[in-house]
Amino acid sequence: MRRFFSCFSSRYCGGATTSDPDITGAGEEDDIISRLPDDVLSSIVSLLPIKEAARTAALSSRWRRLWASNPLVLDDIDLILSNPRHVSAVTNTVTSAFIAHPGPFRSVSLRTYFSDADKDKYALRHWIRLLAAKRVQDLALSNIP
């Protein structure tokens, strides 16, 4: 219900824009997405793959903290599919996202494979610690080679 109570923060939203573009002071330059409340914008951001979500911080100052203001949703399949050969790049990105996001984490799905090697064990332990510290709600961890 949080989203509901913050509604209609900015301007009148009738269907007048096509017939009277000048009434809203709008015209072509109208920033149509910014009239939405922050919590709706952060819901939109949370539907993006993690890297794209974080990159929205660069859009404008209004967007700076949005990606981190919604509980984190991360599925590393997006990273694996875009980068199937570089497992270390995927784990580095996941680690960076876990560190950069203040928490809580709503849903985290990880299927990066960890072997018995010490390096892998360390990385996995690091993730689990971060996940616990940032309060993860749903966690799916699958370790299949």
Partner: peptide
Amino acid sequence: MMKGKSPDQIREVFNIKNDY
């Protein structure tokens, strides 16, 4: 509509003013 786009491209699609 935002997916796969750079911040510059997203700004263009939605007319977001870069105030940085």
